[in-house]
């Protein structure tokens, strides 16, 4: 029994070591779920020697994990604040650069019978509204601002279902658990969600601009691949992908 055990453990360790190529480990805000995946795929096609590993979650959680010592090489925040905070405390080694500006939408399933363009009335009709937790998700913060600017926050706050990050909030509406979701435009135009839902783009002036910044972490500072990918994100090809997912990119209108 012991022998078999030891053997299988050794075997597993052996197999595991094969899996490690040149690794670029990226923590990214969940709104980048689709866009960054496509950018990473493109990058890996051009640089087969590197492997980009993506971990998505809320910006706040990512910042907290980096402070606690998470081995991420790059950090893509959904705002500038978290990135700058990390930079100031020495966890990021490059000054945070903006790479995209995001927009938010009101999203419903087509089969819900709701019309997202009737905003904000639609919120009063819905039983549950999914948004990301504004405590640590910048898109949640923007969604909250929208609700406040339309002066409905107090009336709907009991209906809010908070996702840990925007992806979770999106999955709440996608699965039908909530009727209405205030989610990133990038999610709304992903293939998955486009098929089953419709959305209404919330006017830019109803929330402060969602300027997203990124940087290289302490753990990633001496890695060549990390530097390459860091630069690749600002390349024209990558910017095209970001634009395709509804982001505005710095320096363009």
């Amino acid at each position: 029994m012991f022998k078999i055990y030891l053997f299988s453990i050794l075997l597993l360790f052996g197999l595991h070591s094969f899996c490690r190529a040149e690794l670029i480990r990226v923590y990214a805000a969940a709104d980048l779920q689709y866009a960054l995946k496509e950018i990473a795929d493109l990058y890996q096609r051009e640089h087969p020697e590197d492997k980009v590993e993506l971990i998505f979650g809320s910006s706040g959680k990512g910042a907290a994990q980096i402070k606690a010592g998470a081995p991420y090489h790059l950090f893509f925040s959904a705002d500038m604040k978290y990135a700058e905070e990390l930079y100031k405390e020495g966890y990021l080694v490059t000054k945070p650069k903006p790479y995209a500006v995001g927009r938010i939408v009101v999203w419903v399933r087509k089969d819900s019978g709701l019309d997202p363009s009737k905003f904000p009335q639609i919120l009063l009709e819905a039983k549950k509204i999914a948004i990301a937790n504004w405590e640590h998700a910048p898109y949640g913060r923007a969604a909250k601002e929208v609700l406040q600017n339309y002066e409905v926050f107090d009336r709907v706050k009991d209906k809010l279902v908070l996702g840990e990050n925007v992806s979770q909030a999106a999955s709440f509406v996608y699965s039908g658990a909530a009727e209405v979701g205030i989610i990133p435009l990038s999610h709304a135009i992903s293939e998955n969600m486009k098929k089953v839902g419709t959305y209404f783009l919330i006017p830019e002036n109803k929330h402060s601009p969602i300027v997203q910044g990124y940087g290289i972490t302490e753990a990633g500072k001496n890695l060549k691949g990390v530097k390459k990918f860091y630069e690749f994100v600002l390349s024209p090809k990558a910017r095209e992908i970001l634009k395709k997912y509804g982001f505005m990119v710095p320096g363009e209108k």
Partner: peptide, 20 residues
């Protein structure tokens, strides 16, 4: 939730559901 390091199946399921 780090692939190959700490992304065990239970977390992978959660992630998969989250990303639809």
């Amino acid at each position: 939730n780090i692939e190959g390091e700490t992304r065990v199946v239970s977390i992978a399921i959660y992630s998969a559901v989250e990303s639809m």
